[in-house]
Amino acid sequence: MNLSGISFGPTGAQTIDVVLTLIEPVVACIREHPENGRTYLHELVFGDPREPHHHDGLTLSLRLEDGITSILTLDPAQSTRHNHMWRESRILRTPTFRVG
């Protein structure tokens, strides 16, 4: 995900606006089809990781999480402590949801 053109602060984008833009299509889809969204999320959490669609879903969710993490870590207004926590969370989560 290329986020190099984003600038934060008074003259740039606000972090929340960038994150909301990234997740808006997911939220819109779940709002339009709430039962499908519930079923899909349930399968991502509890489904068989060897099933091809499950693998694809996990890959997409990891890409979305990586995008949000990138946005949060690029914002200079975020503290070093928080950036460390996001990176730590990513490191701890990776083995649990390993895809590939």
Rank of each mutant, 00 (worst) to 15 (best):
Ser61Tyr: 09
Ile23Gln: 06
Val18Arg: 08
Pro10Asp: 07
Leu20Gln: 14
Ser79Gly: 12
Ile91Ala: 13
Leu58Phe: 01
Gly47Lys: 02
Ser7Gly: 14
Gly37Glu: 02
Leu44Cys: 04
Glu51Tyr: 12
Arg93Gln: 09
Thr59Tyr: 00
Val18Gln: 06
Arg90Ser: 06
His42Lys: 00
Gly67Cys: 02
Leu20Val: 08
Ile16Asp: 09
Ser79Lys: 01
Arg38Phe: 14
Leu58Gln: 07
Glu65Lys: 14
Phe97Met: 08
Pro34Asp: 03
His54Lys: 03
Gln14Leu: 02
Pro25Asp: 13
Leu41His: 02
Glu24Leu: 12
Ser70His: 10
Gln78Leu: 11
Ser4Ile: 08
Glu65Met: 15
His55Asn: 06
Glu65Asn: 15
Thr96Val: 15
Asp56Lys: 03
Arg63Ala: 07
Leu44Asn: 02
Thr69Val: 13
Ile6Trp: 07
Leu74Lys: 12
Glu32Ile: 00
Gly9Glu: 08
Pro76Met: 03
Pro52Phe: 01
Leu22Met: 11
Ser4Val: 04
Thr15Trp: 01
Glu32Ser: 15
Ile68Cys: 00
His42Ser: 04
Leu22His: 00
Leu22Phe: 04
Gln14Arg: 05
Ile68Pro: 03
Thr11Trp: 07
Ile23Tyr: 06
His55Trp: 08
Met1Cys: 08
Phe8Trp: 01
Thr15Phe: 01
Thr73Trp: 02
Leu74Ile: 00
Thr73Cys: 02
Leu60Lys: 09
Val19Ser: 13
Ile16Gln: 11
Glu43Trp: 06
Thr15Lys: 00
Ser89Asn: 05
Met85Glu: 13
His42Ala: 12
Pro49Arg: 07
Ser61Val: 11
Arg63Asp: 05
Ile30Met: 14
Val45Glu: 07
Gly5Cys: 00
Leu60Met: 11
Gly57Arg: 02
Arg50Ala: 14
Asp56Val: 03
Pro76Ile: 00
Arg90Asp: 05
Val45Leu: 13
Glu51Trp: 08
Ser79Asn: 07
Glu51Phe: 07
Pro25Thr: 05
Arg93Cys: 05
Met85Pro: 04
Gly9Asp: 10
Arg90Gln: 06
Leu22Lys: 10
His54Glu: 14
Val99Gly: 03
Ala28Arg: 05
Pro34Val: 09
Pro76Phe: 02
His84Glu: 11
Val99Thr: 07
Arg98Cys: 11
Met85Asp: 12
Gln14Val: 05
Leu3Met: 06
Leu64Asp: 03
Glu51Ser: 13
Glu32Met: 03
Val18Asn: 02
Leu60His: 15
Thr69Arg: 12
Ile16Pro: 05
Thr69Phe: 08
Leu41Ile: 11
Asp66Val: 02
Arg50Gln: 10
Ile68Gln: 00
His82Leu: 14
Leu3Asn: 10
Ala77Tyr: 05
Met1Gln: 11
Ser70Lys: 15
Trp86Arg: 02
Thr96Ile: 15
Glu24Trp: 04
Gly9Trp: 04
Thr39Ala: 15
Met1Tyr: 08
Phe46Gly: 11
Arg90Asn: 06
Leu92Ser: 14
Leu74Gln: 15
Leu72Thr: 01
Leu60Phe: 14
Glu32Trp: 01
Asp56Glu: 15
Arg81Glu: 14
Arg31Tyr: 12
Val99Phe: 01
Thr39Tyr: 13
Pro34Ser: 07
Asp75Asn: 04
Pro49Gln: 04
